[in-house]
Design a protein around this nucleic acid. Structure first.
Length: 827
RNA sequence: GGGCGCUUAGCUCAGCGGUUAGAGCGUUCGGUUUACACCCGAAAGGUCGAAGGUUCAAAUCCUUCAGUGCCCACCA
């Protein structure tokens, strides 16, 4: 964890204020003590939360940026950068927060488009009755004006350049100068120059050697230099100056103007550009190698960094390309004190890791340390190596650096990731991480960024209580498509909770039935599938039951799919894959299918069923474990084969087994699924009494399918709720509702209460879809260019389906004709 | 002013060159089949923002446009 300089200081300052204590009066040392006390509580809370949501960390390696060890690294790094000339101290115009009372880096200033005004003010030209009209968005800063600038080639003002104006309200004479920075098109083409309060003006001031008159205090009020306005808040001063100008007849007009305002990221106050002496870090040289490492990334290439998702990579490169120097000092008390001392006698600056006793230049002992601290991100930027014991060549450092992966939100790509990349490479010569995964941010229902101050944040602890930690984790993972943000909804969370519940219930089914089975005298251990841990299903010698072969084949593809998704940081695909497998395949089909087998009076067969059931469940739990750690860990330990193992987290993650792939079983099982679904569909469509078992007829078109159905007849009858499934050899007539595939037709005859009109409507609708499809396929296959250019497998596949569809269409057309001709009486 | 996204079923979103476009929720119909109603079974619902273009083939690639969101930037 980092010490979060500004935010933490703000919190504690406020806390003190509530107690009626002014932190300035408390003094630095006492204040720091208070912050440490606060940190002891809050810091614990954060790691508690992390544990609560199931983050799996090596907690023994927890580090804090302000610890003595980390602080030592910070000083070492600072001194080295200083000696290399990369850290320097300078007076320039910086971003100042009048509430936090500190300088801010460019990144800590967020820009907001706001509706403002453009005030056109008359500045009287000295010794004449003329005016020059300037346009400004910040009239209060005119109190610090030291010139008026026009464009050198602007004919309108050419004769005025070199003359001066009398600054209204202050009655100070200031020059009219020419500078090409002025945009002739904007406003009046004449600009007031306030070097102490505007970046552009500051530069103009430097070029023309203008005085810099700071008219504000550090907390955003007008100071003595503002004359009669002294003491007024800057916004009150704006109002007052405008009123006074108006009274003097010097306000020509006011127009509306949209402009972007810099806001302090923490306090949300309008940031004030202010002249100040600060410490800076030169970035160009540091950025270059980091830029190279990211730009030259290729899989496997040494010392490069992969950024995921890819579009963030371009963002990263653009930012580093245009990087500007980093303001690293902060006027705070909570943080790493800058290791610089000033000599009270000769003003020499000493930068050292340890406090010096006397001035290196004049020997004076009157040394005072710089009161400022470093930007929090300075120490955070050292994280990957500072935490591993650098600069010592520790075993940890040797082993874990460069780290493999950094996971963080994209909102701190520049703040943190870029700085780690730059500093890591600079100090160790190696990239700090080989890959960066930038995850989505969770947004509110209306798509806004969550905000504590607006109260629109979602508390993970509350969500955990409402839905369960596993459900929340699974929900987040399943929605984490890279490149888009997540809008958490109750619906989605609810469905994840239902999933957790489903897993729980499936387990309950297993264990309840296991109890019954064990009473039959089989020991738990005998049901273990020991080879599962090595990635192989146990009961695969000899004849494999179809459903088992199918399940493990499905498992093989899901495992491949999940592993691939994880390797490519496509967590949502992984989560959705396991969901589908567990609920759709394992629960809805497999468990239902093997239920009777589990209590089969044939002991041997029952044992096989149990072993495979456990093996499948085991694999599913393992696949699910990263998403739902608590539930899976708990359930896994109850499985027979888990005995002795420490933790599912420490056991192996499933790898796809080639030998489980079984396309024949897949195809056969799907055929039976289709058969069962067809019957269910007819039942539902025909509103057959759900309590009524009906008899159906089946016309198999080849002996293989006939055999297949015969072998699984009892299961099919059970799952399709049939009293009988009669094999027939003759073509099925219209006397019922029919579903067809190329390999079989199935029919429920009319005497089982079937309404021919429903069947007729259904057939007509099917014909419509088929006709359209056939037409489009025929058109494509009839196209010579398609035939010559499209790949063979596409053409072959399309031809085959076309043939099937045509056959189906013929059958349907026939049936419709017959139905229309002779709907039995009574309907 | 630059850059990056997004626009697909009523809602929230996947899919991002190939054979009748998917999920969850919602909706409709049916259900006390000894794990689960936080459930089971079945179904309806989309000319994939608009217009052009590339291609044998486009939701998927390109261009323009229209909405919308975000990031970056020193237009007073």
């Amino acid at each position: 964890t980092d010490h979060a300089g500004i935010s933490t200081q703000r919190v504690v300052v406020k806390q003190l204020m509530d107690e009626g204590i002014d932190y300035h009066k408390l003094g630095r040392e006492e204040f720091e003590k208070r912050v440490w006390e606060w940190k002891a509580e809050a810091g614990g809370q954060i790691t508690q939360q992390m544990r609560g949501i199931g983050e799996s960390c090596d907690w023994s390696r927890e580090r804090f940026t302000l610890s003595p060890e980390m602080s030592r690294v910070v000083r070492k790094v600072f001194v080295q950068l200083y000696n290399e000339g990369l850290i320097y101290r300078e007076t320039r115009l910086v971003n100042w927060c009048p509430v936090c009372l500190t300088v801010l880096s460019d990144l800590e200033v967020v820009h907001e488009e706001r509706q403002g005004n453009l005030w056109h003010i008359r500045y009287p030209v000295a010794g004449s009755k003329e005016f020059i009209v300037v346009a400004t968005t910040r009239p209060e800063t005119m109190l610090g004006d030291t010139a008026v600038a026009v464009h050198p080639e602007d004919e309108r003002y050419a004769q005025l350049v070199g003359k001066s104006v009398v600054l209204p309200l202050m009655n100070r004479e200031i020059p009219i100068i020419a500078d090409s920075m002025v945009d002739r098109e904007f406003g009046t083409g004449a600009v007031k120059i306030t070097p102490a309060h505007d970046q552009n003006d500051f530069e103009v001031g430097k070029r023309h050697k203008l005085a810099e008159i700071d008219v504000m205090t550090d907390d955003g009020r007008m100071n003595a230099a503002a004359g009669p306005y002294a003491g007024l808040d800057r916004f009150a001063a704006r109002k007052k100056t405008v009123e006074d100008l108006k009274a003097l007849g010097l306000l020509e007009r006011v127009t509306e103007h949209k402009n972007s305002i810099g806001i302090c990221e923490r306090s949300k106050t309008v940031v004030e550009p202010r002249i100040s002496t600060q410490w800076f870090c030169a970035m160009k040289g540091l950025a270059e190698p980091a830029l190279k490492a990211v730009r030259e990334y290729e899989p496997g290439k040494e010392n490069t960094i992969q950024i995921v998702p890819d579009n963030r990579r371009q963002e990263f490169l653009n930012w580093l390309d245009n990087i500007r120097d980093w303001t690293i000092s902060r006027q705070l008390w909570w943080g790493h004190r800058i290791p610089a001392w000033y000599c009270g006698d000769c003003e020499h600056v000493i930068v050292a890791e340890e406090p010096p006793t006397k001035c290196a230049k004049c020997g004076s002992e009157k040394l005072t340390q710089d009161p400022d601290v470093l930007d929090t991100w300075f120490s955070s930027g050292l994280w990957p190596f500072s935490t591993l014991g650098w600069p010592e060549k520790t075993a940890d450092f040797e082993k874990y650096y460069p780290t493999s992966l950094l996971i963080t939100g994209y909102d701190i790509l520049f703040f943190w990731v870029a700085r780690m990349a730059m500093l890591g490479i600079h100090f160790t010569g190696k990239v700090p991480f080989r890959a960066v995964y930038l995850h989505s941010l969770v947004r509110t229902g209306s798509g806004e960024k969550m905000s504590k101050s607006k109260g629109t944040g979602l508390d993970p602890v509350v969500l955990n209580q409402q839905y369960g930690t596993d459900a929340m984790r699974f929900c987040l993972a399943s929605m984490a498509a890279p490149g888009t943000d997540i809008v958490l909804s109750d619906d989605r969370l609810g469905s994840a909770r239902n999933f957790a519940n489903k897993i729980w219930n499936a387990a309950r089914f297993l264990f309840v039935n296991l109890e019954k089975f064990e009473q039959g005298g089989t020991a738990m251990e005998e049901l273990a599938a020991p080879e599962v841990r090595a990635g192989a299903p146990y009961a695969f010698e000899g004849t494999v039951p179809l459903a088992d072969a199918w399940l493990f084949s499905r498992l093989a593809s899901i495992t491949t799919q999940v592993n691939e998704a994880l390797a490519n940081y496509r967590f949502h695909e992984a989560a959705q894959g396991v969901y589908q497998f567990f609920w759709g395949d394992f629960c809805d089909w497999y468990i239902e299918w093997v239920k009777p087998e589990l209590q089969n009076s044939n002991r041997e067969r029952a044992v096989v069923a149990w072993k495979n059931l456990f093996a499948g469940f085991d694999a599913a739990l393992r696949l699910l474990h990263p998403f739902m750690p608590f539930l899976t860990e708990e359930l896994w330990h109850q499985l027979p084969q888990a005995s002795g193992a420490k933790s599912i987290a420490l056991d192996r993650y499933p790898e796809a087994q080639q030998k489980w792939q079984n396309s024949a079983a897949l195809e056969e099982f799907e055929m039976l699924q289709y058969l069962i679904t067809s019957v269910r569909n007819i039942r539902a469509e025909q509103k057959i009494d759900p309590k009524k078992r009906v008899a159906a007829e089946l016309l198999p078109r080849d002996s293989a399918i006939k055999e297949l159905v015969e072998q699984n007849l009892e299961t099919i009858k059970r799952l399709a709720f049939l009293s009988d499934l009669q094999m027939v050899t003759e073509r099925l007539g219209v006397g019922g509702a029919i579903r067809s595939t190329p390999r079989f037709d199935v029919r429920i005859p009319f005497d089982e209460i079937v309404d021919p009109r429903v069947e007729l409507a259904r057939s007509k609708k099917d014909i419509e879809g088929l006709t359209k499809d056939i037409a489009s396929k025929e058109a494509q296959l009839g196209n010579d260019t398609f035939r010559s250019k499209a790949p063979e497998r596409i053409i072959k596949g399309m031809e085959a389906t076309l043939e099937e569809r045509r056959m189906e269409l013929r059958k349907l057309t026939d049936r419709v004709a017959q139905l229309e001709k002779g709907i039995p009486s009574g309907y």
